[in-house]
Amino acid sequence: MTRTKRTPAGEALTGFILDLFRANGLLLTAGDRLVASLGLTSARWQILGAIVDAERPEPVAWLARNLGANRQNVQRIVNDLERDGLVAFETNPHHRRAQLVVLTDRGRQVYDAAGRLQSPWVNGLADGLSVKEIETAHRVIGALRGRLEGSGEG
């Protein structure tokens, strides 16, 4: 069986992708540790952030789409957040069954507390990296994400 060889760019991108997978796992573990005292995990924190970043309250399916995540997983975490009083469901005037997810006052307090923990942590992580290097990596990841979203692969 003939195997198509990777181009030099394909080879470099494969190494980059493998490093991204490793970094993602390490970031999730570090995030879990960082916000554990607040009763959060990286996944819960990420969903709170998606709710905060949304221009208006959104249903779970939209939050999942914006995160590039599985709707069922997001629904499970949102249900946990609701049980813990960090989010609430509101009636969606455009869709009877797809309730809107909103942050409660307690949810806002916990999210803001996570941000206060994140600032010194991320500043330390960025130490020694130039803004230009970070922006270049951000552009590369953004381009990859765009290509994956456009192909239906991500």
Rank of each mutant, 00 (worst) to 15 (best):
L40P: 13
A43P: 09
R44A: 11
Q46C: 03
I47V: 14
L48W: 15
L48A: 10
A50D: 15
A50W: 14
D53I: 02
D53N: 12
R56D: 11
P57Q: 15
E58A: 14
P59M: 02
A61P: 00
W62G: 01
W62Y: 06
A64S: 08
A64N: 03
R65E: 15
R65C: 04
L67H: 10
Q72P: 10
Q75F: 03
R76G: 11
V78S: 08
V78G: 05
N79W: 00
N79C: 02
L81D: 12
E82R: 03
D84Y: 00
L86D: 11
L86F: 00
V87Q: 15
V87L: 09
V87G: 13
F89S: 09
F89C: 01
N92G: 04
H94R: 04
H94T: 05
H94L: 02
A98N: 08
Q99E: 13
Q99L: 04
Q99D: 05
L100V: 11
V102R: 04
L103C: 10
L103Y: 02
T104I: 05
D105Q: 11
D105M: 05
R106Q: 14
G107M: 08
G107A: 07
R108C: 06
Q109N: 12
D112N: 09
R116E: 15
R116H: 09
L117A: 14
L117W: 01
V122L: 12
G124S: 13
L125Q: 08
L125I: 11
D127M: 06
G128N: 03
L129F: 09
S130C: 04
E135T: 03
R139A: 10
R139M: 12
R139D: 14
A143R: 04
A143N: 09
L144Y: 12
L144T: 07
L144C: 10
L148M: 15
E149I: 07
G150S: 13
G150C: 05
G150P: 12
S151M: 07
